[in-house]
Design a binder for these strands. Structure first.
Lengths: 203, 203, 203, 203
DNA sequence: CGCTAACCGAGACGGTACGTCCAGTCTTGCT
DNA sequence: AGCAAGACTGGACGTACCGTCTCGGTTAGCG
């Protein structure tokens, strides 16, 4: 994947000892473990090194700080985990997709996710990684479902899809960060259903 | 206000020199300045002390750590700043209230707010302060408007008001934290309007 | 003593917690031990801290680096260790003083001394400390003896005392650093005697 | 020359590419430059490699560490630089030889020399190199002059030549390392003259 | 009106992680 | 083989900040 980590020289050809992919993976795995065991802030670069058997110098060679490592470690795990349900009914698909998101938010990964969001305002790397590799992935699934729903006439065609997505995901994130953090599928369903019908009493 | 800061002994009687209210205020003011100038993380307790002329020991006597100071400093500023518009039309009021929230999110205070949200997962004090003194204030305004709208028949009476609030605020927070951070009133209006009408094409 | 270590503020009066003299002493003692056990280069600041129970931060607060600590630790031990023999005969006194110096050079402290001399070209603090607190002490003893010898008519009165001192100490240092490092009293005596009589065959 | 650097395999035969003499010279030249520009300690192996176009691995193949490289680089420059004056008068010759030594000590090379002496206690290679290739060279010149002076009756025949040499060189080194480091020819002359006549007032 | 508890500013301290630096070793592919 | 390029381990370095701890001095309000 990459993007977080500093790119190799990539100059003339392939001179010099190549980067050890094994070390790379060991670092990501160790970091991932630590993220779940002790959390983003309590985790130290030293400990990542010790657990992965990779020296601190090497870690700092490829990542600017532990947050960048964490972002890559966490997000590389998340990749390709967001299947599009495609049941035939766009409405059902939407429900399923958002239930999936809810499960993510309320699970162990959701805690790490919240910690990374907290780091984002202070760290550009985390911010861009998070956006590129997770936020967009979430949105893409919904965007596809949305397109199908518009095609089938289930969803309003006059709405900017990005607005629709914000309306669907936003409430879940809000609950995760500022409300009752233990979401369940049922409450997700309720929120989606209301969003579909609207708040207005007007017919 | 408070609750964040440690309460004075208050038990034995009232002997001895009382807490200096002047120091208290100076700390909050200095902290508030620093929050805007350098941000939550970069700000140090040392610097708060230096700028306010209050010693570090005194700061730690009254607050558990710099995040608690920050929370109190920030939130005491925010108090009583959320007027209920009450124009007669609940729909208009809702629009106005959410525009106000949008302005807050996208302004200088919004940045500090985002930083505090980032601290919340790691710090119970921040979490509860934030909730008690800001989140609930935001919700209360909307809750009142909502009640009026239900009474006037503008809003659906069959929805849990808390769900409605989540649906209205959530998308704004989502944009603030993970999307285009420069929200404007117009896009807030759009989101609210769509939320009112719903996403479904069904009549 | 001091001079090596950074001086306290010494400003208005005596505000603030005073420097812990206990920590100061513990650091010097630990350093002194380490100097003899592992030598100047192999000794680490970390280890000084661990052994003395003083934190690294505190050490760096008072000394710029481990070499300055070593200089102070070593030299504070050496202080007031250079008694003037004063037997009545200046010639005898000279012999005794230079035997003492030889013993110092060839003993355990001589090794540390040589290591510090090696650091001097790279470190101003070490250089000045060494000069102020050891070199001058050595020279002073001899200078006093020299004055007596001139008064008694034993030594040539037409020689700059500093030249005389250089001629007497120089060969010992040379042997210590570049020749056979295990000097003994007898060879010191020989060198001094020759220096007294001169190399020239001319009467 | 050498002895410092590891000898090539030379056992099995002469298979494979022979050692590049060009690299060898480039390393020594680069090291020599760095020794004068930044000094022994500040100079890094990395930089020697970069400047000479020789890889670090190659350097470590032929020398045990940077101090050994420095010793060879410095000393190979010094070789055959110590001409015996031989004017006819041994006394004059002695003066000239020691003026030469003084000039060396007080010049740019003297600084490097002092730095190498500082390394000697920690590094056997440096120690032996220094002794073999510089100290002995210095002493040899004087030793030859001394022999002539004894033969001509100018110098005392009852003194161990090595003692005489120590007495003559020692004071210069002492001044270089622990006293006023800017020696000049005149002060060297003074020291030698006093050494010749002796310090004693006795006839 | 003086005593005394509690406050407060200054600043030293232990602890802990940080990110950097360099030595010395190892692994590629080119020559 | 020798060698340049350059990744890697190991470990010390010096810095920064947190939260705690003395000091000496100050300031109410009880007695």
């Amino acid at each position: 994947m990459a993007g977080t980590r500093r790119e190799p020289d990539a100059g003339v050809g392939k001179r010099g000892r190549p980067r050890s992919e094994q070390s790379h993976i060991a670092v990501l795995r160790a970091t991932s473990e630590l993220l779940h065991e002790v959390g983003l802030r309590a985790m130290t670069t030293e400990e990542i090194g010790a657990r992965s058997g990779v020296s601190k110098a090497t870690i700092y060679k490829w990542w600017p700080n532990k947050y960048a490592v964490a972002a890559e470690a966490f997000l590389s795990e998340m990749m390709a985990e967001w299947p599009d349900p495609d049941t035939g009914s766009a409405t059902t698909d939407l429900l399923l997709a958002l239930r999936g998101l809810t499960a993510f938010y309320s699970g162990a990964n959701g805690r790490v996710f919240a910690e990374l969001i907290g780091e984002a305002p202070f760290d550009l790397t985390v911010r861009t990684e998070l956006h590129k590799n997770l936020v967009l992935a979430h949105r893409d699934v919904i965007k596809r479902v949305w397109a199908r729903g518009v095609a089938t006439g289930e969803f309003r065609p006059d709405i900017d899809p990005d607005d629709a997505i914000d309306l669907l995901i936003g409430p879940l994130l809000y609950r995760r960060l500022l409300g009752h953090p233990h979401l369940d599928g049922a409450s997700a369903d309720t929120l989606v259903e209301i969003t579909m019908l609207g708040l207005s009493a007007a017919k």
